[in-house]
């Protein structure tokens, strides 16, 4: 069993961190809005402190210590070389074990694979989502409002159920293959591969791309279109010169909201990829639950968090007014 006991000093450090955070929060609110309003924010500040700040501190603590609570950087070496612990053991076993000592690339490869999948998912969502948002926001299209509702309805259902429903569509004995075979075609294997995982990701995250873009397009003044056309722009040029630049904050927000959950996807690969296509989220889960190694699991989580923060920073550069990124 995992021993969850923290040394007393760690508890005090955490409590002190919490106190400093709360004090800063209150000071910040006071300076900006006056004392009375700050009281309204305190439940949220407390919530943040307990369920966001404290877990982050804990992740940092576990990532930088070993099982006995001593400071170490081994967990990060473990990220670079997934065979780190194994290699150290083999090194003590003499010549027989020597040929098996080599760097394990499981963690790094899985991270690269996750980033690549998230990138693909974001691009596909953007390519499908932008025209859909344009269509929905077009006031001359009567169907636009219906489409908005159609996009929202599946979100009423639980993410898990939707994914399992995809499984019964894509299986070799699933609906799609049965229809194909009924029509005289050969069945195809749609599941148990990266393609199926990507499909599941696009399906689940597409609304997060469409709605921010739809919002920014909807806010746009229709007179801008008229002005552009008065000045001699044709429809394509209006789209390219006016609509697109003005919808950029929505696009950036959409990219952020799709990319982040995509990188951290887990469970989907297990259901649709048949456990053949492990992503970084699955790896972190297995470190915590199968292996019971909270320290390495925390180090992997920390690396993931830092990567997300870096990508957020880059996006913020592209959208200095913070219209998109501020949603997160």
């Amino acid at each position: 069993m995992m021993d969850l006991q923290l040394p007393a000093w760690a508890t005090w450090v955490m409590l002190a961190g919490l106190a400093v955070f709360l004090a800063m929060m209150i000071l910040f609110i006071r300076r900006n809005h006056g004392m009375k309003r700050s009281l309204f924010a305190s439940p949220y500040a407390l919530w943040m402190a307990i369920f966001t700040i404290l877990p982050c501190i804990l992740i940092g603590y576990y990532a930088l210590t070993d099982a006995s609570g001593k400071f170490t950087l081994d967990n990060f070496r473990h990220f670079w070389d997934s065979n780190y612990a194994k290699n150290q053991l083999y090194a003590t076993m003499g010549e027989a074990a020597a040929p098996f000592i080599k760097r394990g690339t499981v963690n790094v490869d899985t991270l690269i694979y996750s980033l690549w999948m998230a990138f693909l998912c974001t691009v596909i969502c953007l390519v499908i989502g932008y025209p859909a948002a344009l269509f929905m926001a077009d006031r001359q299209m009567k169907l636009g409002a219906t489409l908005v509702v159609l996009f929202i309805i599946p979100m009423w259902m639980n993410f898990l159920l939707r994914t399992i429903a995809w499984m019964s569509l894509l299986e070799d004995q699933g609906l799609i293959n049965r229809v194909l075979r009924f029509l005289g075609f050969e069945g195809v294997q749609l599941m148990y591969n990266s393609g199926a995982v990507l499909l599941g990701m696009v399906y689940n995250f597409l609304p997060f791309m469409v709605f921010p873009i739809y919002n920014s397009l909807n806010k746009m003044d229709p007179k801008l279109h008229e002005a552009a056309q008065d000045l001699g722009c044709n429809n394509w040029k209006t789209l390219y010169k006016v609509t697109m630049p003005l919808s950029l904050p929505g696009v950036i927000s959409g990219i952020t909201m799709v990319f982040m959950p995509s990188v951290t996807t887990f469970f989907l690969p297990r259901i649709l990829g048949g456990g053949n296509t492990m992503m970084f989220g699955d790896l972190i889960e297995s470190k915590f639950l199968t292996e019971g190694n909270w320290n390495v699991g925390s180090a992997l989580s920390l690396i993931m968090m830092i990567l997300i923060m870096i990508s957020l920073g880059i996006l913020r550069k592209a959208d200095p007014e913070g219209e998109g990124g501020s949603m997160i």
Binding site: N83, G104, V106, S286
Partner: peptide, 8 residues
């Protein structure tokens, strides 16, 4: 560790 290598 070995099984993780297989699965990934």
């Amino acid at each position: 560790t070995l099984f993780e290598e297989v699965k990934s």
